[in-house]
Write a protein that binds this DNA or RNA. Structure first.
Length: 865
RNA sequence: GGGUGUUUAGCUCAGUUGGUUAGAGCAUCGCGUUUACAUCGCGAGGGCCGCAGGUUCGAGUCCUGCAACACCCACCA
């Protein structure tokens, strides 16, 4: 066994350790010896076009922590990694790339070539991302890594489509149907978007109030005059007296040169106080209006096409860009004196989540999933699953968020007009149409559209396992835990649940854990443009992976955002080093490290105390991990390691000596407990102790010894209080640390205990001499402090200012008297003694007694000054 | 407009089913190189637990209202 270096240098060890783990084969569940039970975690696939950011890292750390914990518990652990093809986003990224590098567009390549190239591009990026994921210590089975565009996964996705398409109810409605519906259209991406792919951005726009023509009886207001070319109605509130008489009437108008037929309809959604209280209904370009049109059987007139240009048939406006048409329409209205008002108005502009281009709502032929189909209602099935807690959600409050999402979900538009993604398996031949994974034969032409990415990733829970006949599917479905960012609840969690329920009949996982977002130390969102981001690889190189892992785990709770600054990471780097040095000390102190160490018998009070504490920390850590309280587990461990072990027990070990067995055992246990949190440093120490052939990663998780040792805990705490009390007086009186002092303790019944542990007090408080007796009068020139039932007199020859000392003690008495008064008031209150549980009353009595005794003792000291 | 969360020390946050005189880390201040560690040790200061009510013997903790901030959903054209 070689001596450890003074400081832990992560860079020196991490890559080697990871290699060792990987080569051991233990990331592969089948290679784990003697497993009992299984633990499966399918890792959420990040987009295969980028790189790992700190948000990903934060998720991986949680997944890996749980994976490593369960592996040490002896379970057959599978962490299955993968990548998502991220349809629109990857296509946008790759189009930019070929534009920049080769000056070409996807049309220059053609669909097939473009597809091949982007596939290769994603595979290449995936490899790079994998190397980053290894840096964070992810113990995933890389042999099983999946990509949503791998042919076998695509096949399962297509089969799902066909099955849903063939799900027909008695009325002939399909679960997947094609229809003209209003959708969110991104003119830049030239594709439909689902509701969740649209963001909103506040802006100031103009609100125009005008009349269609001179003959129209009243004015309407709009922010989008160009769409008014497609108005087929005006909606008013049925309670509105101004317009009641017009309801049901039809007006033929000439609107800036375009003939329109406007029907006046009533709708309770119309706000009488907004604008003129009359709303021009444009069914083809507003989701709300479209619904009104459905209810009222209004004709639908498309005005804006998929390039965001005005269709032909609208006079001089035809062919204009929507923006130009807006100016032109307003100008025409102004010229003819129909424009009544023009005012600034703040509203939310819909923009494309991927490219930030303003969305055009328009009517288009798309594929939809009916989420409430008569044969199998996806939303009802999902609701039941969540309500019955077949999936347990962390944090619990997200259950309600999920339920309200389920309740409000609308039919899901799954077709996208892009090239990158699985192509919709519907085939056409003349008037015929059929759904089929493979081409039905010659003459059949496949649908041009591809799937919404979430239709693929929504099947991740079983497509990665080879549904329905794969060995993995049979063994590992459903998985135990799914961990994802809280921002993708509506995108992914919900979709994964509905698709899995439909396809497999089972919920996809048992536990669903949401992480929050990682923000900078001021709580700002990290972004490249602000330059406030933390690059995981950069920061790992600086502080080590373990420090980064700890700073993402401790002080982080499910569903809540985490503010992360470099200082915090530096703090945990310090802790990593602390653990290293604890080990270093232990290795210098013990004779023959034994890997199969049994819990030793306590020889001293300190031994008994630390074993009790260790037992507690095993219990708390295990319990917290079982309940997904990861931060709590880490905090308890840190508290034990630094405060109890390093600051007290190791110092005492130097004094008492003969701790070989004890230290061997304690280090052995805490390395195991820490391993899931900080795998690298613990594994390296393990190797230094036990040699390269023993691997901590697959050691057995420590068992908690349930015996309690309340007595030794209390006794040891008395020692601690005495030592801290003396140290405090020393610091207060500015006694040099090197100077040893004399102390006398009037110890009452505790005399024997203190006598047994006199070495500890002498050593820890740096004493010259210590006298212990049941009853001692306060020596001259000493300062007295009361600790529990003991009085500790510290000899301060020549350093005492009698007046100051008296004032200090009197101040203390005064504070105590206030405290006592409060306790007395509480205890003499009959309501308290009657209604409070006896244990609580008893506790208060004890407190009172103790405080009163303390006052007496201090009074005694005052009188002796 | 609807919803969720947050509000505790200068900063970041714990505070488990209501029950000690409310805790930690970082930062600050003082002292210090005792043979594991200065990426360290010892000590100290620092809090009307957002505001106002209520329930209770007892509230940081439960209820109601309000405020500020953050986020999500819907979107009044």
């Amino acid at each position: 066994m070689s001596e450890l270096s003074k400081n832990y240098e992560p860079k020196q060890y991490e890559d080697e350790i990871y290699k060792k783990w990987e080569e051991s084969g233990f990331f592969v569940p089948e290679n784990l010896p003697n497993t009992k039970g299984r633990y499966v975690n399918l890792l959420p696939p990040p987009n295969a076009n980028g790189e790992m950011h700190v948000g990903h890292a934060s998720g991986y750390v949680v997944m890996d922590l749980l994976g490593r914990y369960h592996r040490m518990k002896g379970e057959k652990v599978l962490l299955l990694p993968g990548k998502d093809h991220a349809g629109i986003q990857s296509q946008v990224v790759y189009e930019k790339k070929i534009k920049k590098e080769r000056g070409i567009s996807r049309h220059d390549l053609g669909r097939e070539k473009f597809y091949e190239e982007i596939f290769a591009f994603c595979k290449d990026r995936a490899q790079y991302m994998r190397s980053q994921e290894k840096k964070i210590g992810l113990s995933a089975d890389w042999n099983r890594e999946k990509f949503t565009m791998d042919p076998d996964l695509v096949n399962i996705v297509l089969e799902t489509f066909v099955a849903m398409y063939n799900e027909v109810d008695k009325k002939g409605n399909r679960m997947i149907y094609r229809g003209d519906r209003i959708i969110n259209w991104c003119p830049r991406c030239a594709t439909a978007l689902s509701d969740v792919e649209v963001e909103h951005e506040e802006q100031i726009t103009k609100l125009y109030t005008f009349k269609y023509n001179q003959d129209f009886p009243f004015a309407i207001s709009t922010t989008r005059p160009e769409t008014k070319l497609g108005d087929t109605a005006v909606a008013v509130n049925s309670k509105d007296k101004r317009y009641k008489k017009y309801i049901g009437q039809e007006f033929k108008v000439d609107f800036v040169g375009v003939p329109l037929t406007i029907k006046v309809i009533a709708d309770h959604e119309v706000d009488m106080d907004f604008g003129t209280g009359a709303l021009g209904v444009t069914p083809a370009h507003s989701a709300v209006d479209w619904e009104m049109a459905q209810k009222n059987n209004l004709p639908i007139i498309k005005v804006i096409d998929e390039q965001a240009k005005i269709y032909s048939g609208f006079g001089k406006f035809s062919g204009m860009k929507a923006g130009e048409a807006r100016v032109a329409v307003v100008e025409a209205l102004r010229e003819s004196g129909l424009l009544e008002k023009e005012e600034d108005y703040p509203n939310n502009l819909s923009i494309c989540e991927r490219c930030k281009t303003p969305i055009e709502p328009l009517v288009s032929k798309q594929w939809f999933v009916n989420v409430d189909h008569a044969n199998f209602s996806l939303k009802k099935a999902a609701r039941k699953t969540i309500e019955k807690e077949e999936i347990k959600i962390y944090p619990e409050r997200f259950k309600d968020v999920m339920l309200s999402w389920i309740d409000n979900v609308r039919d899901w538009c799954i077709s996208r007009q892009i090239w990158w993604g699985p192509r919709i398996p519907v085939w056409y031949k003349g008037e015929e149409m059929m759904a089929s994974v493979d081409s039905p034969g010659a003459g059949w032409k496949q649908d041009e559209d591809t799937f919404d990415t979430w239709f693929s990733s929504g099947q991740w829970a079983y497509s990665t396992l080879g549904y329905p006949n794969g060995k993995d599917y049979k063994e590992f479905y459903p998985s135990d835990t799914m961990i994802m960012g809280r921002d993708i609840l509506p995108f992914w969690a919900f979709r994964m649940i509905i698709l899995s329920l439909y396809r497999t009949g089972k919920a996809p996982f048992k536990n669903l854990y949401f992480t929050g977002l990682v923000r900078d130390e001021k709580g700002q969102k990290m972004s490249k443009s602000k330059g406030n981001g933390i690059e995981p690889i950069e920061i790992i190189n600086k502080y080590g992976t373990d420090a980064v892992r700890l700073s993402l785990l401790i002080g982080n709770t499910p569903g809540n955002d985490l503010n992360l600054g470099e200082q915090k990471i530096a703090g945990f780097r310090n802790f990593t080093n602390k653990l290293w040095n604890i080990s270093r000390f232990v290795l210098l102190s013990i004779e023959n490290p034994n890997i199969d160490v049994e819990r030793p018998k306590a020889k001293t009070l300190a031994d008994e105390w630390i074993l009790g504490k260790l037992g507690m920390v095993i219990y708390h850590t295990t319990d917290a991990l079982e309940n997904y309280q990861l931060s709590f587990a880490g905090e308890k461990l840190r508290e034990f390691t630094w405060d109890d072990l390093a600051d007290w027990y190791l110092e005492i070990a130097k004094i008492e000596g003969g701790k070989s067995e004890m230290l061997n055992y304690i280090l052995n246990v805490i390395l195991k407990l820490w391993h899931p949190f900080m795998p690298f440093v613990t594994e390296q120490i393990w190797e230094e102790i036990y040699g390269a052939d023993k691997m901590l990663m697959v050691e057995k998780w420590p068992i908690c010894h349930p015996e309690r040792s309340e007595g030794s805990l209390k006794q040891f705490e008395l020692l601690q209080s005495i030592i801290i009390g003396i140290r405090s007086v020393r610091a207060d009186k500015k006694i040099e640390p090197a100077k040893k002092i004399n102390v006398v303790i009037s110890a009452g019944k505790q005399a024997e205990l203190l006598e047994e542990n006199r070495e500890i007090i002498e050593g820890m408080a740096r004493l010259e001499s210590l006298a212990i007796a049941p009853k001692v009068e306060k020596p001259d020139n000493s300062v007295g402090i009361v600790v529990g039932s003991c009085e500790v007199f510290i000899d301060l020859a020549g350093l005492i200012d009698a007046t100051k000392e008296k004032a200090r003690l009197e101040g203390e008495i005064k504070a105590l008297e206030g405290y006592v008064a409060g306790l007395k008031a509480k205890l003499t209150n009959p309501e308290f003694s009657q209604k409070a549980p006896p244990a609580v009353v008893e506790k208060e009595r004890a407190k009172l007694k103790e405080a009163e005794e303390k006052i007496e003792k201090i009074k005694g000291q005052v009188s002796s000054i």
